[in-house]
Amino acid sequence: MIILNSLNSIIFKNYLTIIFGFFILFSQALKANENIYIGYASSLHNAMKEIVNDYEKRSDVKLKFGMGASGNIAQQIMRDAPYDIFISANKKWINYLDKHQKIKERQPWISNSLSVIGSMKSIENLTLNANERFCLADPKNAPLGLYSLEAINTLNLKIPDNQIIFLKDAASVQYYLSINECDYAITYSSNILNLEKNVDVQSLPLNLYSDITYEIGILKSNKDTKDFVNYLQQPSVLKILKNHGFIID
């Protein structure tokens, strides 16, 4: 009791000092000069984890990353999120940042393709029962959603609005597929590798949608970011991506 009381009074008397101390402590932690911040399309997540691990083994630079729908990250950047490198799953969101003078340098990267998931004879004559749901990425922000809608429109599929579940990005389509919440879904072919074996997957013909090209945008041009972007184009990295199901041109 006495110890507790004296502890209490110490904390009470030095309240301001303690707050100030914490402030100094955390402001030091916030000053991270050696970090590169990378924002990338969520479809890259599994591959990126591997790539980042590999890179940190050979370099002193720490990589910090945020992922989401490409459009989502682009808008975070517009609101001054501190990303140094941005990898988008289409050109649109790099163009958007370019238009606002946020991009110092840009280069095309890898490609991808679409697959449709769900039991069906063929996607052309797919009809949904009333309680079935079709999961798509939200075309507002997720490039996957735009590509998927292109394919759906080319095929002239009719899916009632209230049976579509729009999910925020490719990663959440992946997640909701993994818990069997979607009867049907369109997702990247690079994302179907970790699905369960008994799931029906068909790849969608490439002529149904426009080319899926990932593009790298450098937002802060310095040696560290350039080194990392150069590294991303190395054959060893491209091999990792190929193993994850991406298309290397």
Binding site: Q75, D138, K140, D161, I165, F166, L167
Partner: peptide
């Protein structure tokens, strides 16, 4: 419940969706 317009898109979800759109 997701973010389905007319089905589950309530006010905060609608605000969130619009915040995503420049």
């Amino acid at each position: 419940a997701g973010n389905i317009f007319g089905e589950t898109q309530t006010l905060p979800l609608a605000i969130y969706s619009s915040l995503q759109d420049p």
